[in-house]
Design a binder for these strands. Structure first.
Lengths: 113, 113
DNA sequence: CCGTATCCGATAGGATACTG
DNA sequence: CAGTATCCTATCGGATACGG
């Protein structure tokens, strides 16, 4: 529990999501999909530095599982898929922007203690 | 890179910190120290559910390494230590509150997609 | 009271090969 | 184009034992 303005916030739901976000490529994917909208598997792969397909696939499925991303199948030849953030994903990304900005800004300073 | 209001934010510094925060007990520790100020090792242990000492020790060192917590040694018999958040830790906790609140609020809803 | 050392099972990360 | 399957190593999480 965290206290803020007399309110109690349970961090347990956050734990799971933060853990997913902490894994390799995940933050990059969330940032990218938020910037660009809807992208195919290989587009994402190129943009985040060509991870192994199994890793990228795993990360995308994890993002789906926690409700931050969705997968849309486009029936063509060859088959295409399109990944994008859900409303929840977009909202979370928005809330995280100040965190990213601040962490970026303090990384060249000392440890603050 | 994340784009926000035409500004480019590098998520790389965040990756490391988010990863630390995602580990077991870490979010709980940050929340606790923010609520209570300065606490001893066993006080923290009790409050976060009595993890194994080696795990708690590891998490506290990681928080020190990324500059979010500090360790103060009080020379007594027996020896005491006092852990607390740094200014950086307090600031980050503050920025994360909206994230925690939001994630808590959506966890009983559907996945948003 | 405040840890470290060691061992052990469970995930995470990465290489290689193969498929609709 | 968009993955899955397998194998292998590193890190995480927990139990037990011991030390300043």
């Amino acid at each position: 529990m965290i206290e803020s303005n007399g309110r109690q916030i349970c961090i347990y739901p956050s734990q799971k999501v933060i853990r997913v976000l902490g894994k390799q490529y995940t933050l990059l994917i969330v940032g990218l999909l938020g910037n660009r909208g809807e992208l195919g598997f290989n587009d994402i792969a190129r943009a985040v530095g060509r991870p192994r397909a199994n890793l990228l696939s795993q990360r995308l499925r994890e993002l789906e599982e926690v409700g931050l991303a969705r997968r849309r199948i486009i029936q063509q030849r060859p088959v295409r898929v399109a990944y994008s953030l859900t409303d929840a994903g977009l909202q979370l990304r928005k809330l995280l922007i100040p965190v990213f900005e601040w962490l970026e800004s303090v990384q060249n300073n000392d440890k603050g203690g």
